[in-house]
């Protein structure tokens, strides 16, 4: 979800390279006059460039986890990203999403729960699953990709988690926000699509009314992005839009 800047900088760079500052001035409503001074760019004192998962994630344990205080699901199995040739984030129409996501599916069995560390083949690429708990309410896939030294731009991520209910829960909705677009399935059924160039906004889009079964329920997700930040957040909400928290989360 990085919009402004690629195009603007490209335009600015071209202007400089071609030495057509006057043209750029006219185009942007600028006047000739004072020459540009060298830009004073601050040198970062210390950059945390460490490729580590531990900043934002911890390994999921076998102990079942509760959703956080606002009901966000922080435990997910995440597959290393599938690289896609996506230059801009304005292409994620409903059809594009469905075609791209289904054609890059790791399994047509939407009830499958991969093992932590297992490898899955998508196309000709072998990718690894990670079972992780996010330390914040949302799950920053961009940071995950950086940590595991995989591409962060132009990527498709597959996600799986398991919701464990002691009793059936009716009339709830799966609620998600993602950057930029994605799809979610519950127990094998497609329940939510977030198309377009979206921001990761809490409760940005919800499913129709759903039922969580007693026992295990499988959420599958796919989140896709071109350049820039990629992340998502998911929770269940009730009829009043309040979070539902009476379940646990596991990766098996």
């Amino acid at each position: 979800m990085n919009r402004k800047h690629t195009f603007l900088l490209l335009a600015m760079a071209i202007c400089v390279l071609l030495g057509v500052q006057a043209s750029a001035v006219t185009a942007l409503g600028q006047a000739p006059g004072q020459g540009q001074k060298p830009i004073q760019v601050i040198t970062p004192i210390q950059s945390d460039t460490t490729r580590t998962l531990s900043t934002l994630f911890s390994p999921a344990t076998s102990e079942k986890k509760a959703p956080d205080s606002k009901g966000f699901i922080q435990r997910w199995l995440v597959l290393e990203p599938i690289k896609k040739d996506i230059a801009r984030n304005n292409i994620f129409t409903d059809n594009y999403l469905r075609n791209t996501i289904y054609s890059n599916n790791f399994s047509t069995d939407f009830l499958i729960v991969p093992k932590d560390g297992a490898k899955t083949k998508v196309g000709d690429r072998e990718l690894k699953w990670y079972a992780l708990d996010s330390k914040i309410f949302n799950f920053k896939l961009y940071r995950f990709a950086y940590a595991v030294n995989k591409p962060q731009n132009g990527v498709l991520f597959w996600l799986v988690t398991v919701i464990n209910c002691e009793e059936e829960i009716k009339n709830l909705r799966l609620s998600a926000g993602c950057n930029s677009a994605g799809m979610f399935w519950l127990n094998g059924k497609e329940v939510l699509m977030l198309s377009g160039d979206r921001d990761m906004v809490v409760d940005n889009c919800t499913s129709s009314r759903l039922t969580l079964n007693k026992g295990k329920n499988i959420i599958r997700g796919a989140v896709i992005n071109g350049p820039g930040m990629i992340d998502f957040c998911v929770r269940f909400i009730d009829e009043k839009g309040l979070p539902i928290k009476n379940y646990t989360i596991s990766c098996e």
Binding site: N2, H5, T6, L8, L9, A13, V41, P44, G228
Partner: peptide, 11 residues
Amino acid sequence: ATGGGSASGHK
């Protein structure tokens, strides 16, 4: 100083 985004490396 920059236009942001990937082109500037978010710096």
